[in-house]
């Protein structure tokens, strides 16, 4: 059993090391969201600062700096970039920019969050996003599971060929179908509404059809056969046996679709014609202008947008990873 324990510990150590690497992007985003704009990017040649810091100010609100190892308060900066400093002993000196280092202490620069919420109509955007997410998840789950059932559990003639067509629709790059597709929605009068973003999801999404098909195929054929003998209809088998058994796969589908829609920016931008309809992902663009990105608020809003997803994943992951419970079945 000693080897068993060694491998367990080795496995755990490996996991810990790897997860540190995988945590990087998130920790970076979180830490950056609390940094002052001037501290976001590491000074050239130096590693980034992981712990956010803030300026230190004296009782009169003046910025505290280091000057030749001494603490000083900054009185101002002149035209040529020279700093006027008040030393602790009351002397006033003029210092070059490179001689002055702004004193820092670990602290959170909350203002990024305040600014981020000021820069967008958060609750309006959130409501739009939730609506689109909810509707597309609903549509995806219903329509894709139906189609997947057909391809996985009903042995109809030609289904292999049709299934390849389903897959093939994912192989066409969107760049060249975007314009004709827009004309279709435009002809239907749907441009400027949420319909182009929602309705297609009620007609089966190839990615999820494929995913669900793989899982549906794993459910023993005996179950359907038994149900058929009991006079259960095909729809009855789908709704009463397959769907409940494939709950984890359905949950995965719902989660993936929710995540995709939550982050999608291209489609909402293209089809929506009023900034009051914009989703969170589209509104996030407002943090970037021609030459300037408001990195602090951008990171803050990215954190605000990402956190609920993480919590959602954390709380629900048991559901979609538990697998199809067949422990009671003996082969």
């Amino acid at each position: 059993m000693a080897t068993e324990r060694t491998t367990r510990i080795a496995g755990l150590a490996l996991l810990l090391a790897l997860s540190a690497v995988f945590l990087l992007p998130f920790v970076w985003m979180l830490s950056t969201s609390f940094k002052h704009e001037s501290r976001i990017f590491p000074p050239p040649g130096r590693p980034p600062q992981w712990l956010p810091t803030t300026d230190v100010r004296d009782a009169e609100g003046r910025i505290m700096v280091w000057y030749r190892g001494e603490a000083a308060a900054e009185l101002g900066v002149d035209e040529a970039g020279r700093h006027e400093l008040l030393l602790a002993d009351g002397r006033v000196v003029t210092a070059l920019d490179e001689e002055v280092e702004i004193k820092q202490r670990i602290g959170l620069h909350w203002q990024n969050y305040v600014r981020a919420f000021e820069m967008m109509n958060f609750f309006q955007n959130l409501r739009n996003t939730l609506f689109i997410c909810y509707m597309t998840v609903l549509g995806t789950v219903i329509s894709s599971s139906l189609a997947a059932y057909s391809f996985a559990r009903i042995p109809w003639k030609g289904r292999e060929v049709v299934f390849v067509v389903v897959l093939a629709t994912m192989m066409m790059p969107y760049q060249v179908t975007l314009i004709p597709l827009f004309s279709v929605y435009s002809a239907l009068g749907w441009v400027g509404t949420f319909k182009p973003l929602i309705v297609p999801y009620f007609f089966g999404v190839p990615f999820y059809i494929f995913l669900l098909r793989q899982f549906f195929k794993g459910i023993p054929e005996d179950l359907s056969a038994a149900a058929r003998i009991d006079g259960c209809s095909e729809f009855g088998i789908y709704a009463r046996i397959i769907l409940p058994l494939a709950k984890p796969a359905i949950a995965t589908t719902a989660l993936f679709q929710f995540l995709f829609q939550w982050g999608d920016f291209l489609n909402p931008l293209i089809y929506l014609q009023d900034s009051r309809q914009y989703t969170l992902a589209v509104a996030l663009q407002q943090f970037q202008s021609q030459h300037e990105s408001a990195w602090g608020p951008l990171m803050a809003m990215s954190t605000v947008i990402t956190l609920p997803i993480i919590v959602l994943f954390f709380l629900t992951q048991r559901t979609f990873i538990q697998g199809i419970t067949m422990s009671g079945l003996k082969g």
């Binding site: 975007l178 827009f182 004309s183 435009s186 400027g192 920016f265 931008l269 293209i270």
Partner: peptide, 15 residues
């Protein structure tokens, strides 16, 4: 980020 996509699709697509 998607200026050309938006401009071209909507002008070509009639909106």
């Amino acid at each position: 980020n998607a200026l050309m996509e938006k401009t071209l699709t909507s002008t070509a697509g009639g909106a």
